[in-house]
């Protein structure tokens, strides 16, 4: 075989591989475009039928053909708020403990354990929530139970992200504070927190994104009460993903469209939260690297 022929052949292979890689990367764009188009198309009928009432009405009755999603939007935001209120202080505490207090021998196993907990399936937390937490602790199936379960689920995520952010604090910043006579807590307040503020906000928002979209655990413990808008944490309620999970199987026609419209609403909310979070995290990471 001629050398030039060999050369031509390997160039062909080279180009083919490149095309393959481009196609693979483009799949992401195709899938997202498909999600947006097909879901919006299916959600359209109910939005036409209900108009803006879909977002502002609190009545949801499939037999009557009335679909007001407000109670579910409220439920999603309420449970996520409870979850954040519980998870954020605890996650920050653990992240600070791991990075500033824990001796080296304890640090590694703790990080390892947190990573392990992040892979415990949400349905297992849901099972524990419905059969143990809601029955033996007098909480029933309620916003609060759902909030607690969500908090337990997002704590490992917020903690590990916060830990990464906090660890980018330059050693010199911390030593400067200590050299001026600061106590450990004063050092944290003067060096660690100001340095990692942006990243911590981002970590919390990523946790919020997870809490908003979490379906199964919420569907099991929130109580599936229709139309409840109340700030009583012991009341039963419902959230967007939980309604979809519980009703979609037996739905048809307009009902199906309404549930898909709920999914689209959820999709938009979580994506906004996630994008803002990612932007904040990336900016603070870039700034802390000094580039």
């Amino acid at each position: 075989m001629q050398l030039s022929e060999l050369h031509a052949r390997s160039q062909h292979a080279d180009r083919a591989f490149r095309v393959l890689a481009v196609v693979a990367a483009t799949t992401v764009l195709v899938v997202l475009a498909l999600i947006t188009v097909t879901m919006s198309k299916r959600a359209w009928p109910v939005l036409e039928h209900m108009g803006l009432d879909f977002f502002t009405s609190s009545r949801w009755s499939a037999p009557e053909g009335i679909y007001g999603a407000l109670p579910f939007i409220f439920g999603t935001l309420f449970t996520a708020t409870i979850a954040l209120a519980l998870a954020v202080p605890v996650s920050l505490g653990v992240a600070l403990f791991i990075t500033q207090v824990a001796p080296p021998w304890l640090k590694k196993p703790m990080v390892y354990l947190l990573d392990l907990l992040a892979v415990v399936p949400s349905v297992v937390f849901g099972l524990w929530g419905v059969l143990v937490l809601s029955q033996h602790f007098g909480l029933g199936r309620s916003f609060l139970t759902a909030g607690i379960i969500l908090a337990v689920m997002i704590t490992p995520i917020i903690t590990s992200l916060s830990r990464e952010v906090i660890e980018t604090t330059p050693q010199t910043d911390k030593e400067a504070a200590l050299a001026l006579g600061a106590t450990r807590w004063e050092m944290i307040g003067a060096s660690v927190l100001p340095h990692s503020k942006g990243g911590l906000v981002g970590a919390v928002m990523l946790g919020l994104g997870r809490a908003l979209g979490e379906t199964i655990a919420a569907a099991l413990v929130i109580g599936s009460a229709l139309g409840q808008i109340t700030l009583d944490p012991y009341a039963s309620g419902n959230s967007m993903p939980a309604v979809i999970a519980n009703e979609f199987g037996e739905s048809d026609g307009m009902h199906k469209s309404a549930l898909i419209a709920l999914a689209v609403t959820l999709f938009v909310i979580t994506i906004i939260v996630n994008l803002v979070a990612t932007a904040i995290v990336q900016r603070s990471m870039r700034r802390s690297r000094g580039t």
Binding site: L32, I35, M39, G213, E214, P241
Partner: peptide, 26 residues
């Protein structure tokens, strides 16, 4: 193109799993 794919991949990690379920159902 690479920047767009990277950005959209970030967006895609935020898609709630139930939404993905409905999408595949359709």
């Amino acid at each position: 193109l690479a920047r767009a794919v990277r950005f959209m991949a970030t967006v895609m990690t935020g898609v709630p799993s139930i939404v993905m379920g409905l999408f595949i159902y359709i």
